[in-house]
């Protein structure tokens, strides 16, 4: 039996990509909302901010960052947080998300979403940082589960237990990337449905759907391909468990024409409609 989603759903959205700017404004595609990569708009001006403003005038947006590095042992970047807050004041996003990961220590940025060990030490480190970010931004932070290829020997709990505990300690919310759950489940041999079933439903703000590269022995999260059947099935399961959560189709590389993504987004609508109707009946 599905739960009623605790947050109003924005419906079905796409990641905003520069190659689609003019087509979005000219064509008014059947997309309910857009997710913007925060760092792409932390610039002085020009085309990026012009199109962000124009698209925001017509669609709801959410901000999705890649550089918060909430799990890093380096101090929080206060200048970055101030820039994020200023961008949020400009585009009034429905929420601000980033990833449960670390992206570098010291002054360096690896530009990758490095997984954390799931330990009490990491919880004790990350939870106050989430609270500090929430205070700095003046809003609840939404954190996404990342794909991972390694597990740490020190991990003393599952990823979903770790996420749930962060929610409990900080009141943060979750961006559940269904593809990432699938990728990590294949790489580490856990049941992806157990991951989803264990999450605190009230905290799940958004879903991500994406594609990956299946190498048989392991799976690489590429976000450069259509959603595969197994991830569609897992999406249906997430809908049954968590209700009509705002859904975002994310493509980061090999970006196809907008029309192609809109067609794939229609599939998400169909899966959601069918699943939720069946669950309600």
């Amino acid at each position: 039996m599905p739960v009623a989603a605790p947050h109003p759903s924005l419906g079905f959205g796409l990641g905003l990509r520069p190659t689609h700017y003019t087509e979005i404004l000219d064509g008014r595609p059947a997309v309910d909302w857009f997710e913007v990569i925060t760092e792409n708009y932390l610039v002085g001006g020009g085309r990026p901010l012009h199109f962000l403003d124009a698209i925001r005038a017509r669609y709801p947006v959410a901000m999705h960052g890649v550089s918060l590095s909430i799990g890093s042992t380096a101090p929080l970047d206060r200048d970055y947080l101030a820039a994020v807050k200023a961008l949020a004041a400009r585009c009034e996003p429905a929420w601000i998300s980033d990833h449960l990961c670390w992206t570098g220590t010291g002054a360096h940025n690896l530009h990758d979403l490095m997984p954390l060990p799931y330990t009490e030490e990491a919880l004790a480190h990350v939870a106050p940082r989430i609270e500090a970010v929430q205070e700095a931004l003046g809003r609840t932070l939404v954190l996404e589960n990342v794909s991972s290829y390694i597990r740490y020997a020190a991990s003393a709990m599952t990823e979903w237990e770790f996420l749930g505990e962060l929610v409990r300690r900080t009141g943060c919310e979750l961006l559940l990337d269904i593809n990432n759950v699938y990728v990590s489940s294949r790489n580490h041999g856990f049941d992806p449905r157990a991951f989803i079933d264990a999450l605190p439903a009230h905290a799940v703000r958004q879903f991500h759907l994406a594609g990956h590269l299946d190498l048989g022995s392991h799976v690489i999260d590429t976000h450069d391909a259509p959603v595969c059947d197994a991830v569609w099935d897992l999406y249906a399961h997430a809908l049954e468990r968590l209700g009509p959560v705002s859904t975002l189709l994310e493509r980061d590389d090999r970006i196809p024409p907008l029309a192609e993504l809109v067609i794939e987004l229609e599939q998400a609508r169909r899966v959601a409609h069918t699943t939720l109707q069946r669950a309600a009946g």
Partner: peptide, 21 residues
């Protein structure tokens, strides 16, 4: 020793991804 998975193979995904990115 800190990585529980087959460390060499799986860790190399991150090493390679860093250079490619």
């Amino acid at each position: 020793q800190a990585i529980a998975s087959p460390a060499g193979e799986r860790w190399s995904i991150y090493v390679e991804a860093y250079r490619l990115r």
